[in-house]
């Protein structure tokens, strides 16, 4: 019964997503959507990659990282320098940016993932700040003056393709046995270890994978802006990404997608009241947390929500009861 409902929901979800994609692409390529709005859509795609990849670390594996902007910065600078100095093809550059970020993630992850909860959060925060200060002090990165003259290689198509590939990879990963290992660690690390899951391996894996995609997003960002400086990758940026993940729901990929899109477009829409927009943004954030601390979708996916039918409510309630007792702490 439940499977049928989920399948039904998945089909509806896929159709809605497809319709949305066709609609947006039609708009972009027939120039109904102007240059400025297309730029906003590119940023939406980049933020979707960032939010989904951070969700793997924070939402599915339950490790609290506050340093995503650091990984993004690594990817942005590596890719920008490769483009400027080697002129390699853009996809190659992006993949290398991802690999470099993943290696840094591995380097940071191995020692720090022994820490738990708040301590891990602070360590990753510290890492992000260190990356920023190192970039500020290096010669090759241009220091505080930034790095300009990056070829504008990010098109709407490449950003969109990268976002879709990221979503497909993460959805499949979460549904695999590896994905269940991540969730097991989030629910109870000690129990997961007792069940034979190599918790260190999976935590580091989640961390480096998240870092890799943050690096790719950074590469797209650099080739979209054509200019990067350390101020683009401050602690504030990490917080913005984290807010998207929490807003959508920790452990909900569709939540991250919706939140990334909404929270990118919202400040643009509030541009008319520019001086109040950050106030409105932060007030909304506080109110949302007070009213719905689990985020918009909680751990549910959009497809689950679409697929529920009347007969399924009993099942759903039972599931929720389990969730609320297990989700403490």
């Amino acid at each position: 019964m439940k499977n049928a409902a989920v399948k039904y929901g998945a089909i509806i979800g896929a159709l809605i997503a497809l319709a949305g994609l066709v609609f947006i692409n039609y708009g972009v390529y027939s120039y109904y959507i102007d240059f400025y709005l297309t730029g906003v859509l590119v940023i939406v795609c980049i933020n979707i990659i960032l939010a989904v990849s951070l969700n793997l670390i924070n939402g599915f594996t339950g490790q609290f990282s506050l340093g995503h902007a650091g990984f993004m910065a690594v990817g942005a600078y590596i890719s920008a320098l490769l483009t400027i100095h080697t002129g390699w093809a853009f996809p190659v550059v992006l993949v290398l940016a991802g690999v470099a970020s993943a290696l840094i993630g591995l380097l940071i992850g191995l020692p720090t993932l022994r820490l738990r909860g708040d301590y891990l959060a602070i360590a990753t925060l510290g890492f992000g700040e260190i990356v920023r200060v190192v970039i500020l002090n290096l010669k090759i990165t241009g220091g505080p003056r930034g790095l300009g003259g990056i070829a504008p290689k990010t098109t709407f198509f490449s950003a969109e393709l990268a976002a879709i590939l990221t979503i497909i990879i993460f959805v499949n990963l979460i549904r695999s046995s590896h994905g269940r290992a991540f969730v097991a660690i989030r629910e109870d690390e000690i129990a997961a270890e007792a069940m034979g899951i190599d918790t260190t391996k999976y935590k580091v894996l989640a961390f480096s994978l998240g870092a890799a995609f943050a690096g790719i997003a950074g590469g797209l960002f650099a080739h979209h802006q054509m200019f990067i400086d350390p101020r683009s990758f401050t602690f504030q940026r990490s917080i913005e990404i984290l807010v998207m993940v929490v807003f959508g729901g920790l452990g909900s990929i569709s939540g991250s997608i919706v939140a990334a899109a909404a929270l990118t477009i919202l400040p643009e829409a509030l541009r008319g009241i520019a001086q109040y927009r950050m106030i409105v943004y932060s007030a909304l954030l506080i109110i949302l947390m007070l009213v719905r601390p689990q985020g918009l979708f909680g751990t549910k996916e959009l497809t689950d929500l679409l697929g529920f039918k009347a007969k399924d409510t009993a099942h759903k309630e039972k599931n929720q009861a389990v969730e609320t007792t297990g989700g403490e702490g």
Binding site: G117, I279, A283, I286, M289, G327, E328
Partner: peptide, 19 residues
């Protein structure tokens, strides 16, 4: 938020700081 998750409280604190 005293009895909800730690991360919700932390995000709220970040929100208050931004506000």
């Amino acid at each position: 938020l005293r009895h909800s998750t730690r991360i919700a409280a932390l995000i709220t604190a970040i929100g208050v700081s931004m506000l």
